[in-house]
């Protein structure tokens, strides 16, 4: 059975490509993590999947297309939890109003209380305005509102990025419990690879609008194939891990804000620590885009030398 299927999805703003031909599958009841740095297009992808921005390509849930012609019911089944809890709740509506707006049918008060219970909030907050709640409480209200739509698919876009660590833990635990309890299908988006690893069954890595690598979470992190993924994994701060201060050959002194290399070759080649600028004989990267080949494979990295590296290990 197919779950959430994203097929050749592209989004561009004024001629600049934000998401470039992304295909992705989230099996029903599973959690796929999407990781990338700022400007990688992960939030745009989320907005496109739920239909908040226009796109080319196809998005479907259990075989049913989720485009403009899909019914309201079908669209409601895919919901997004927003990143910024300060702007995701209307400052002039009480919590009761916010959750009530998302509920359809009667008995809203009773059901609102059940939802608050699910996100571990006191029903007393129903009468309060978002401004009087803490960040963690607001994010839990936002999750309760999302659940009120009775979604089957949940897209969580950087839901803990603006929270302190102890509050982040509360929200992560909550999302995980709800996912299991309700059997939700989740696309979990974050810049924090450690959080993505903790939450997800599978991981997809985005770089400049493209998915450069995907696979089972444990495998991708234990043995990243794409040089970009490897950089990300190595960059994750780890408790007590002292690092050599001299720069290794694989250190990238480039930033994700830089536009990718143009032309026909691999867009990552100008940053690549194992690419043609470092190693001789890798002219292939200058001429051929590895994505064309990667698309035919699954759970693979979009890199000409990923397999070569694996073979040489």
């Amino acid at each position: 059975m197919t779950g959430l299927t994203v097929d050749h999805l592209s989004v561009s703003y004024g001629g600049v490509s934000a998401v470039d031909d992304v295909s992705l599958e989230v099996r029903p009841g599973s959690v796929v993590g999407l990781v990338g740095e700022s400007g990688s297009g992960k939030s745009t992808l989320a907005a496109a999947v739920v239909g908040l921005v226009g796109y080319s390509g196809r998005v479907s849930w259990k075989g049913e297309l989720l485009d403009g012609r899909a019914g309201r019911g079908a669209r409601r089944r895919v919901q997004l939890v927003f990143q910024d809890h300060r702007s995701s709740l209307d400052p002039r509506m009480t919590v009761a109003g916010i959750i009530g707006e998302a509920l359809s049918g009667g008995n809203r008060d009773e059901r609102s209380r059940r939802l608050l219970d699910l996100v571990a909030l006191d029903p007393a907050v129903l009468d309060r305005l978002p401004g009087s709640l803490s960040g963690g409480q607001r994010q839990r209200v936002a999750i309760a509102r999302t659940l009120a739509a009775e979604p089957e698919v949940l897209i969580a876009d950087e839901v803990t990025a603006s929270l302190d660590v102890s509050v982040q833990a509360v929200v992560l635990n909550l999302l995980r419990d709800i996912q299991r309890e309700l059997g939700l299908t989740v696309l979990f988006i974050s810049h924090n690879l450690a959080v993505v690893r903790y939450m997800s069954d599978e991981v997809a890595v985005m770089y400049h609008g493209r998915i450069v690598e995907r696979g089972a979470a444990t495998e991708v992190i234990a043995d990243p194939q794409h040089p970009y993924t490897r950089t990300l994994v190595e960059a994750v701060p780890q408790l007590g891990k002292r690092r050599p201060t001299e720069e290794g050959a694989e250190q990238l002194l480039l930033e994700s804000s830089q536009s990718p290399a143009g032309g026909a070759g691999c867009p990552f080649r100008s940053r690549c620590p194992v690419g043609p600028r470092v190693l001789a004989g890798r002219d292939l990267c200058e001429h051929e885009d590895p994505f064309a080949r990667a698309r035919s494979r699954r759970n693979e990295a979009a890199c000409h030398f990923a397999e070569a590296r694996r073979a040489s290990c």
């Binding site: 660590v165 102890s166 833990a169 992560l172 959080v195 690893r197 903790y198 994750v236």
Partner: peptide, 16 residues
């Protein structure tokens, strides 16, 4: 509280 690359994936995080 903050998951790192070695956190056991099945267990809940400690919270305050």
């Amino acid at each position: 509280a903050s998951p790192d690359m070695a956190t056991e994936r099945g267990t809940p995080l400690p919270t305050l």
